[in-house]
Every structure is written in structure tokens, then in C-alpha cells.
Amino acid sequence: FSITQFVRNLGLEHLMDIFEREQITLRVLVEMGHKELKEIGINAYGHREKLIKGVERLI
């Protein structure tokens, strides 16, 4: 299971460039909250919320 699959499953594949540029893996994403996601350029609250909720389902 990769970050690419995870992001695609959430319908947020347009954010993949950010994850690749910042070298974010699923392991790193698990540790990130709204503040960190915003810092790397994910400005939409809804997108950040989707990512965080998606990660919570993985754990």
C-alpha cells in the first residue's frame, strides 16, 4: 500500500506533486496534522481533513 494509492483512494491525486516534492511517505503522513499539511502547501481545510481522517482509518 503506497502513498500514491492512498491519495488516489481519497480522490486527492492532484496533491501527489506536493507529496513527491516533499518526499512524504505514509509513515510521515501519519505523523502530520493540519499545521504540517498546511506548511507543505495543502491549503484547503477539506483536503487536510480528508487526509487526516483517512490516516486514522489506516492505523
Score class of each variant (00 low, 15 high):
Glu22Ile: 06
Gly54Ser: 08
Glu13Lys: 07
Leu29Trp: 04
Ile40Arg: 04
Ile59Asp: 05
His47Gln: 15
Ile52Val: 05
Leu10Ala: 03
Met16His: 06
Phe1Met: 15
Glu36Ala: 09
Asn43Asp: 13
Leu12Lys: 00
His34Ala: 04
Ile24Leu: 07
Asn43Tyr: 13
Glu31Gly: 15
Gly33Met: 04
Leu58His: 07
Val55Lys: 05
Arg27Pro: 14
Glu13Leu: 10
Phe1Ser: 11
Tyr45Gly: 06
Lys50Ala: 15
Ile24His: 02
Leu51His: 01
Lys50Gly: 05
Glu56Gln: 14
Glu39Arg: 11
Ile40Tyr: 04
His14Ser: 11
Gly41Lys: 05
Lys35Arg: 10
Lys53Gln: 11
Glu49Asp: 09
Glu13Ile: 10
Ile18Asn: 03
Leu37Ala: 01
Leu37Val: 01
Leu37Gln: 01
Lys53Glu: 08
Leu37Arg: 02
Gln23His: 14
Arg8Pro: 00
Leu10Phe: 02
Tyr45Thr: 09
Gly54Lys: 04
Glu56Cys: 11
Ile52Ser: 00
Leu26Trp: 13
Glu20Asn: 11
Gly41Ser: 03
Arg21Cys: 05
Asn9Glu: 14
Glu13Gln: 11
Val30Met: 15
Ile40Ser: 03
Tyr45Arg: 14
Lys35Trp: 06
Glu20Cys: 09
Met32Thr: 01
Tyr45Asn: 08
Leu51Glu: 00
Ala44Asn: 15
His14Asn: 10
Met32Asp: 00
Glu39Ala: 14
Leu10Pro: 00
Arg8Asp: 05
His34Ser: 03
His34Lys: 02
Phe1Arg: 08
Lys35Phe: 07
Phe1Pro: 13
Lys35Ala: 10
Lys53Trp: 09
Glu13His: 10
Lys35Asn: 09
Gln5Arg: 08
Glu39Lys: 11
Phe6Pro: 00
Glu20Gln: 11
Gly41Pro: 00
Gln5Trp: 08
Glu31Pro: 08
Met32Tyr: 07
Ile24Cys: 03
Gly33Tyr: 03
Ile59Val: 11
Glu31Asn: 14
Glu22Phe: 10
Glu20Pro: 03
Glu13Asn: 09
Ile42Glu: 02
Arg48Asn: 02
Met32Ala: 04
Gly54Asp: 04
Ile42Gln: 02
Leu29His: 09
Ile42Asp: 03
Ile24Asp: 03
Asn43Gly: 10
Glu13Ser: 11
Arg48Lys: 02
Asn43Cys: 14
Asn43His: 12
Lys53Met: 09
His34Leu: 06
Arg8Met: 12
Leu26Cys: 09
Arg21Asn: 08
Gly11Tyr: 05
Ile18Asp: 02
Ser2Glu: 13
Leu58Val: 06
Phe19Leu: 07
Arg21Ala: 09
Val30Thr: 12
Val28Asn: 12
Lys38Phe: 09
Val30Pro: 04
Ile18Ala: 04
Arg8Ala: 14
His47Trp: 11
Val30Asp: 01
Tyr45Lys: 12
Ile3Cys: 04
Phe6Asp: 00
Met32Ile: 04
Thr4Lys: 14
Ile59Asn: 10
Phe1Tyr: 11
Asn43Thr: 13
Phe19Trp: 02
Thr25Ser: 11
Arg48Tyr: 05
Arg27Phe: 10
Asp17Ile: 13
Leu15Met: 05
Val28Phe: 08
Leu12Ile: 05
Leu29Thr: 02
Ile3Glu: 01
Gly11Trp: 01
Leu58Trp: 13
Leu51Lys: 02
Leu26Val: 06
His47Tyr: 09
Asn9Thr: 13
Gly41Glu: 02
Val28Tyr: 07
Met32Phe: 08
Leu37Asn: 01
Leu15Tyr: 09
Arg27Gly: 14
Lys35Gln: 10
Glu22Val: 06
Val30Ala: 13
Met32Arg: 02
Leu29Glu: 01
Leu37Ile: 02
Phe1Cys: 15
Leu26Gly: 02
Glu56Ile: 10
Tyr45Trp: 15
Val55Gly: 06
Glu56Met: 11
Lys50Cys: 11
Met16Leu: 12
Leu37Trp: 04
Ile3Ser: 02
Lys50Thr: 12
Ser2Thr: 15
Leu51Asp: 00
Ile3Pro: 03
Phe6Thr: 01
Ile40Leu: 11
Leu29Phe: 03
Ile52Gln: 02
Glu13Cys: 14
Ile3Trp: 06
Glu36Cys: 06
Gln5Thr: 11
Val55Gln: 02
Val28Gln: 14
Asn9Ile: 14
Asn43Phe: 12
Ser2Ala: 09
Gly11Lys: 07
Val28Asp: 14
Gln23Ser: 12
Val30Gly: 09
Arg27Ser: 15
Val28His: 15
Asn43Glu: 13
His47Pro: 10
Phe6Val: 05
His34Pro: 03
Gln23Glu: 10
Leu58Glu: 05
Gly33Arg: 07
Leu37Tyr: 05
Tyr45Glu: 12
Ala44Arg: 10
Gly41Met: 04
Leu58Gln: 05
Arg48Trp: 06
Glu36Trp: 06
Val55Trp: 06
Glu39Asn: 11
Gly33Pro: 01
Glu56Arg: 13
Ile40Lys: 05
Val7Glu: 00
Gln5Asp: 15
Ala44Gly: 12
Arg48Ile: 08
Gly54Thr: 05
Arg48Phe: 07
Lys35Gly: 06
His34Trp: 04
Gly33His: 06
Glu49Ala: 11
Asp17Asn: 11
Ile42Tyr: 00
Glu39Ser: 11
Phe1Gln: 14
Tyr45Asp: 09
Leu29Ala: 01
Arg57Val: 09
Gly46Cys: 15
Glu13Tyr: 12
Phe19Val: 04
His34Glu: 04
Lys50Arg: 13
Met16Pro: 01
Glu31Gln: 15
Glu39Gly: 10
Val30Cys: 12
Ile42Phe: 04
Met16Thr: 10
Gln5Tyr: 08
Ile59Phe: 13
Thr4Leu: 15
Leu12Phe: 04
Ile59Cys: 15
Ile40Asp: 00
His34Thr: 02
Ile52His: 01
Asp17Ala: 14
Arg57Thr: 10
Phe1Thr: 12
Glu20Asp: 10
Ala44Phe: 11
Gly46Thr: 13
Leu26Asn: 01
Lys50Asn: 05
Val55Ile: 15
Glu56Leu: 15
Met32Asn: 02
Gly41Val: 07
Ile59Lys: 14
Leu15Glu: 00
Arg21Phe: 05
Thr25Ala: 04
Arg27Leu: 13
Leu51Ala: 01
Thr4Val: 13
Val7Arg: 02
Asp17His: 15
Ile52Met: 09
Glu22Thr: 08
Thr25Ile: 04
His34Gly: 05
Arg57Asp: 12
Ile59Met: 13
Gln5Glu: 15
Glu13Thr: 10
Met16Trp: 07
Thr4Arg: 14
Gln23Pro: 04
Phe6His: 01
His14Ala: 12
Leu15Cys: 05
Lys38Gln: 14
Glu36Asn: 03
Glu20Thr: 12
Gln5Pro: 03
Asn43Leu: 13
Gln5Gly: 08
Ile18Tyr: 06
His47Leu: 08
Val7Ile: 13
Gly46Pro: 14
Ile59Ser: 08
Ile52Phe: 02
Ile18Cys: 04
Val30Trp: 06
Glu22Gly: 07
Ile52Gly: 01
Glu31Lys: 15
Ile59Glu: 07
Ile24Ser: 01
Gln23Leu: 07
Leu37Phe: 07
Glu39Trp: 07
Leu58Thr: 04
Val28Glu: 12
Leu29Gly: 00
Val30Ile: 14
Arg27Ile: 11
Glu13Met: 10
Thr25Arg: 04
Gly11Leu: 03
Ile18Lys: 04
Val55Glu: 00
Ile24Ala: 02
Phe19Tyr: 01
Glu22Asn: 15
Ile24Lys: 01
Glu22Cys: 11
Gly54Ala: 13
Glu22His: 15
Glu56Lys: 14
Gly41Gln: 03
Gly54Pro: 00
Arg48Met: 05
Ala44Leu: 12
Gly54Ile: 04
Leu12Tyr: 02
Arg8Leu: 10
Leu10Met: 08
Val28Arg: 15
Ala44Pro: 07
Glu13Ala: 12
Glu39Tyr: 07
Ile40Glu: 00
Lys38Met: 14
Lys35Tyr: 07
Leu29Met: 06
Lys38Gly: 05
Asn9Met: 13
Gly41Arg: 03
Val7Asp: 00
Leu10Thr: 02
Leu15Asp: 00
Lys53Ile: 08
His14Tyr: 13
Leu12Thr: 02
Glu31Ser: 15
Leu12Glu: 01
His47Thr: 15
Leu10Gly: 02
Arg57Glu: 13
Asp17Glu: 12
Val30Asn: 06
Met16Cys: 08
Gly46Trp: 13
Leu37Pro: 00
Ile18Pro: 01
Arg57Ala: 15
Lys53Cys: 10
Leu26Lys: 01
Thr4Ser: 13
Ile42Leu: 05
Lys50Leu: 12
Lys38Ala: 10
Ile3Gly: 01
Lys50Gln: 10
Ile18Arg: 04
Leu26Pro: 04
